[in-house]
Amino acid sequence: GVLWLVLGRVRLSEELATSVQLAAVIGVAAACDALRDDTGLISAVVMGMALANLPGLELPTRRPFFETLVSLIIGLLFVSISATVTPESLRHVVLPSLALTALLVLVTRPLIAHLAAAGTDVPARERWFIGWMAPRGIVAAATASTFSAELAAHHIAGAGRILPATFVVIVATVTLYGLTAFPVARRLGVLRPSRSRPLLVGGAPWAVDLARALSAAGLDVLMWAGADEERTRIEAAGLELAPGELMASAEGIGAVLEGITDVLLLTGEDDFNALASLTLRESVEGTVRRLAPSAASEGVVAPYAGGEALFDADLTRPEIVRRYEAGARVVTRTADGPPAAGEHVLFVVRPEGRLVPVTDGVRPEPVPGDTLVLLTET
C-alpha cells in the first residue's frame, strides 16, 4: 500500500508505474498463495478495492497502456479457457447453463441494479438498462479457471463441469447483450445522440457567446472556467457548467467528463491553454485544440507546444479579443453562400450535428444544409 501511494505521487511514466503496480499485486497474490492455497486471487481483488479507496491515491480514469495490457491478458485467458473446453465436456451442461443464464439475465442482474441504484437520482429507464447489461467475463473466467482444476484434483463431484458451464454462460451472455444492447437502449429511450458535445474552457464574454452560438446550432455544449466571475457569467447565460477542477476531472480525480467529443481551450492564458492541451490529449477521448498565441508571445510553453491551433492564422487569441471589444460578434447562419466581407468562419456544424472547426491547417468546405458559426465585424 505504501508503494502504491508513492507511485501515485511520484511522476513516473505510465508504463513504469503500471509495471511496478502489477508487480506489487503479483507479489501480494504470490505471498498469500504461499501461506494458503488459492487465496491469491481473493487477496489481489481485496487489495485493489482497498487501495482504490485510499484518500491519497489518485489514478486516472483512462490509462491507455494499462488498458492495452489488460486486453492482451484477457484475450489470453479466454483463448486458454476455450482450448480446454471440448464438445464432449459441454454435452451435459448446455441446458443447465442456459437456465442459469436466464436466471442471471432476468432476475439476478435487474435486482442487483435496482438495489444498488436505490436512493440515487438514476432515472428508472437507466436502471432497467443497467439491469439488462451484465455480460459475464473476466471475473467468472478467472475464478472458474483458478478453482475448478483444484476441486477436480480432490475428486469433488461436479468440479469438472465448472469450467464448461462458465464457458457457456460467458458465450451466451456476451452474444445476448451484444445483439440486444442497441435495440433495448432505443426501446428504453436512453440512447445518447450522436451529435458533437464540445467542452469550451474559458469564460470570457466572446467565449460565452461562442457557446451560445454552438448551442443554437443544436449541439450539447459544456463549459468550464476557473474564475468565479467567469463561472457566474456562464451560469447567467443558461449554459451547462462542468463541475470540479478541469485537470482533476480529465484525469479521473473528481467529476468525470463523459461523452466529450471536442475540447476547445479558449482561456486568456496562452501557457495554460498549451499545458492543458498537452495534458488532456492523454486523458480525453475527443480532440483537443487551443487558441493560437500571438506571434510575439513571450510565454514559457505556448510558443513551443506545437499542435493544431483553432481558426485562421490571423485569428490569434489577442486578435479575437481585440475584434470582439471593437464590436465583432459570434453568429450562426446557414451555409447558403460564401462568407461575406468581414465574416470569418470559426466552425461548420454538419446536418447530423458533427462539429468541424476551422484550424490553421484545415478549412472545411461548407455544403448546403450546414450551419456556419461566424465571427462577424460590425
Rank of each mutant, 00 (worst) to 15 (best):
L200P: 06
E352Y: 00
R127Y: 00
A276T: 04
R322S: 12
G48R: 07
I42T: 14
A172P: 05
P96M: 14
I138Q: 09
G342E: 04
A52M: 11
S71A: 15
A213F: 03
H154W: 02
G353L: 11
V184Q: 14
L280W: 01
F311P: 06
S82T: 14
S97D: 07
R333H: 05
S97Q: 11
R333F: 04
C32S: 13
A236P: 01
L199D: 02
D270K: 02
A276K: 06
M47N: 01
I112E: 03
L98R: 09
S82H: 03
L179T: 12
L246E: 04
E258C: 00
V190R: 15
I234T: 08
G299K: 10
S97W: 11
P198D: 07
T378V: 08
V345L: 13
A134V: 03
A116M: 11
T175I: 13
W132E: 00
L265A: 03
G202Q: 10
R11S: 13
T175V: 15
S277W: 01
P164V: 09
L57H: 09
E230G: 06
L5S: 05
A50W: 09
A248Y: 00
R127I: 02
A149Y: 03
A116H: 04
H344D: 14
L106T: 12
V362P: 00
R290S: 15
Q21C: 09
R136K: 13
V25F: 02
T173H: 10
S297M: 04
S148D: 06
L310S: 10
T232A: 14
F272H: 07
V201N: 10
I138E: 13
V184F: 11
G259P: 02
A185W: 06
P318C: 11
R195T: 09
D370L: 10
D336W: 05
T359W: 04
T378F: 03
G259C: 02
E269Y: 01
V221Y: 03
R127H: 01
I42G: 06
L375C: 07
S194W: 02
A149R: 11
L257Q: 04
A118M: 10
L100S: 15
G202P: 06
T39V: 02
I156A: 11
T287C: 04
I162G: 05
G226Q: 13
A140H: 08
R197P: 01
V171C: 15
T108K: 14
A30D: 03
E377S: 12
L346C: 05
V139P: 01
M133L: 15
A309L: 07
P339S: 08
T166L: 12
R136C: 04
D37G: 13
R62W: 00
G131R: 07
A134D: 05
A134L: 08
R91Q: 15
L35V: 10
V331A: 11
E298V: 12
M247G: 05
A181T: 14
V169H: 06
R323K: 12
G337C: 11
P293M: 06
L41N: 07
V28E: 06
M223W: 00
S89V: 10
D121L: 06
L7S: 03
P193A: 14
S80K: 14
R212Y: 00
R333N: 12
V46S: 10
D37L: 12
